[in-house]
Design a binder for these strands. Structure first.
Lengths: 157, 157
DNA sequence: GAATTTATCTTAGATGCTAAGGAAATCGCA
DNA sequence: TGCGATTTCCTTAGCATCTAAGATAAATTC
């Protein structure tokens, strides 16, 4: 049992389509960040904090992830803290470090902004079979891993 | 005939994976832009100019696409022009307008920066069947359209 | 326990954005 | 046609955020 017919696509077609999606998504991220009173970099860092779940990340982790200097991270955490998105406290185990943890309610605030957009994407997925969704999801996961490896490599010569 | 087995994924799993990919890609775009001596917004605008092919776009088109003010676009075009990425000339048909066109060789310069990363993605695609690539490509195209519609709607109240 | 390394913060300066407004070209309607 | 309204881009002032360089304090090494 197959899904609907689609026109054939080469990898380079796929990459072009992806570039377009990324480009549009960057603009979208800017808007989401603005709606939350944050900068785009702030939002990327907060996503990383959320990913840590009930745990926490350090300021240095955020600098590495967002590819910004530690000086910039100080400002980022200041804004996230002032906005009630994260808490900052010194790590008792290593008092040079700063533990940044998500404020539980903040995830909902971000979700409220992403929600309407995510709903549109979910609607798009109704046109796809579970198998197809699995393929797409798998690709996202691998591509993100590829991108992260590439970023780490190409900036540590 | 099926591709390899994949773990099942719900739409919300897919969206989470996508969010992660987007987040990483934003950082990647920052790096690419830096390698070209541009800002991320400059690069997004130049992508839009490239998309126009042998044609051209106006300054206002770029402002709408990148969601920045027309004042910012003046600076963006200045940098792209100074960097040899685009030409700027008044539109003879409507002399208020400015025609922004890509310098032919500039596409290659950008490609040189994206190339190594695209090669990694192409490598990833070798693990997918043509049918699967078609599904993924199709999804990218539709998602980009969804995102653009959403952006246009949510910023024109 | 002194020297080195690590992690964060501070400061000064540069960059890129917005908001507001101006100038020139076009449109639209009497 | 003529003249006000609109569109398009540019300019300016001010603000937010980044980098680079260096300071500070804590941990690690030998």
């Amino acid at each position: 049992m197959e899904g609907k017919q689609r026109t054939a696509a080469s990898p380079s077609d796929a990459i072009s389509a992806l570039d377009d999606l990324i480009s549009t998504s960057v603009v979208g991220q800017q808007e989401f960040a603005r709606n939350l009173g944050l900068s785009m970099t702030d939002l990327i860092c907060f996503a990383h904090v959320l990913e840590a779940g009930d745990s926490w990340v350090t300021a240095g982790d955020l600098a590495a992830r967002a590819h910004v200097t530690t000086g910039a991270v100080t400002g980022i955490i200041n804004r996230l803290e002032r906005g009630g998105f994260v808490t900052r406290e010194p790590d008792p185990a290593d008092r040079r470090r700063v533990r940044v943890a998500a404020v539980p309610a903040a995830a909902d605030r971000v979700q409220a902004v992403y929600g309407p957009y995510h709903a549109r994407l979910a609607e798009l997925f109704t046109q796809y079979t579970p198998d197809e969704i699995a393929i797409v999801t798998d690709w996202f996961t691998r591509a993100a891993a590829v991108a992260r490896v590439y970023l780490d490599e190409s900036c540590a010569p």
